[in-house]
Amino acid sequence: MTLAVKAAGVHKRLGSTHALAGVSLDLGDGITGLLGPNGAGKTTLMRVLATVLAPDSGSVRLLGHDPADREARPVIRRRLGYMPQEPGFHQRFTAFEFVDYVAILKEMTARRERHDEVRRVLDLVGLGDVAQQRIKALSGGMRRRVALAQALLGDPRLVILDEPTAGLDPEQRLRFRELISRLAQDRSVLISTHQTEDVAALCHHVVVLRDGETVFAGAPRELAEVARDRVWLADERSAGAELSWLTGDGRHRHVGNAPPAHAELVEPTLEDGYLLLVGRGSLAVAA
């Protein structure tokens, strides 16, 4: 079976910044979470995979095609859904008009069927009732759902969502998780996010980027395992911990190699593993 994404040694410079420094990635069906701190190269990688940016070097194959090939690029794009990190909107358009406009650019020409498809995706993201409202009248969360709706047009085989849950309230995030988990049954979905709980709840596969390089690729539980035997709860703050914070129950959670005195070893989470990879102790762990 053809992998949805197969990237090897991808480099991309943006000005003087080496945004991607040899990223390799293989994605099949299911949901992949892309984690990383600000400036790690997540959005640049998403833009490369969305065929918006061309890599400086390295190879990328999307849905079995090379996006550098001008003939193949539209073939890829017809089967690609993309939600940018900062999706712009035509404020004077209604939600329906905007998604309809995008549908035309996705080559859906038969008017009646196109409108049916627009209604379908708007219903899917829960915006059927406000489809005829102007986008400028919608809340930030609703606008992100409009952006998500357009990414779902035409039943794409590869869906790339750059921080789709930013600005969504908890209920909307849960609805989003439900929707995406249904979507991913027969396609490949790549989600870039800062929300480790979304990754833990949704993703079959996690990739962590740091400084333009892949520092982890595996299952979510494997990411949690990175922090195995390195997470403690204690009553006192420890100066030796890589990361330490006061939890809601009044105890300090320590992540790192140096346990404080009388600390209690606890089960690591995906977030602990991620913090160890990209946090202050990342160099030691990565080595």
Partner: peptide
């Protein structure tokens, strides 16, 4: 989720160099 209308499904298999008259007319 995969209940897609025929027109949408057809779009995914279009020849790459097909003239975009209908899209342009719809945009116009």
């Amino acid at each position: 989720m995969s209940s897609v209308s025929p027109a949408v499904a057809i779009a995914a298999h279009r020849p790459a160099r097909e003239r975009p008259r209908r899209e342009v007319a719809a945009l116009a």
